[in-house]
Design a protein around this nucleic acid. Structure first.
Lengths: 149, 149
DNA sequence: TTCACATAATTGATACATCAATTAAATTTA
DNA sequence: TAAATTTAATTGATGTATCAATTATGTGAA
């Protein structure tokens, strides 16, 4: 039986990578803005780039379920980062607005996130990064909508 | 300000990869063993490979906090996959045993997990995979124990 | 126009994640 | 040996994840 131990697969490495990156990121973010999570920061930035996006659309970008987005947003409203109303032309949709506090946070977060990325990719050249992306995209494709025979 | 949108970074791709892989895996696993999660399956396999490991050690391998391991295990005990006692030589430690049901599950899971991996890596050659691992390990190293200046 | 269907968001149930604080046993060190 | 420190596991608080079911609105076809 040629079954590799879970710890000896790429998937293990991929998972470890994202966890380490998140841990480092969260630490550096918390040093600047204490009451926000990485996921909330991302959501905020996405929303600033795409004002007027629905929760559905945000979820699509962040590949998160609708339910997760609903809960993240209600937390962020409670924490004063977002304001929420209903879309005038489609009452099913919510209309989301970044508050002043949210805007201030974004300004603080952008440089930190930039530094985190640079830190994580230090001494790794662009071609290597592209190769990784290319391979991982194949994996994503392989995993999309497939079941084992 | 040269700030890439979050969706245009490797980290985004890495995160998406692991999510797609997990989604595909969970689906295929559920088709064979309906009442187990990927994480529980992994824990079971790790424990079989390393009988006598402490929760601490298991957590180390799976890079999960002690608290997570505690809760996973108590769930698995409740679900009849594990038995738990105290270690005779060190009463702080727990001694974990895979039940018969747990063993049966492992036998069912190993082939599915093998297929999942193969499916995910289909048409990607070994050298590509190694390169990805090499680069990601650099990222992991870069993110370990570093704070931004 | 009404009725079937699609879509956006929410909610409940459950699993897992982190952090901080606690308990209890083992080990060091004074 | 007694006291201080370390270590393994647990617990509480909180955030996120999934799935399935529900609500409410919008849209297309009969």
């Amino acid at each position: 039986m040629k079954f590799d131990a879970p710890t000896r697969t790429v998937f293990y490495t991929v998972e470890k990578t994202i966890k380490q990156y998140r841990k480092m990121s969260q630490k550096n973010i918390s040093a600047v803005v204490s009451d926000i999570t990485i996921d909330q920061a991302l959501l905020l930035i996405i929303l600033e780039e795409h004002p007027g996006y629905s929760q559905k659309e945000i979820g699509g970008i962040l590949f998160r379920e609708d339910a997760s987005i609903t809960r993240m947003i209600s937390l962020m409203v409670r924490n004063g980062l977002l304001k929420k109303g209903t879309h005038p032309e489609d009452k099913r949709r919510s209309s989301l607005q970044i508050t002043k506090k949210g805007q201030e946070y974004i300004a603080l977060l952008i440089p930190v996130i930039g530094r985190n990325r640079a830190l994580a990719l230090h001494s790794i050249d662009k071609r290597e990064v592209s190769m990784v992306e290319e391979v991982l995209r194949k994996v994503i494709r392989n995993c999309s909508g497939r079941e084992s025979s």
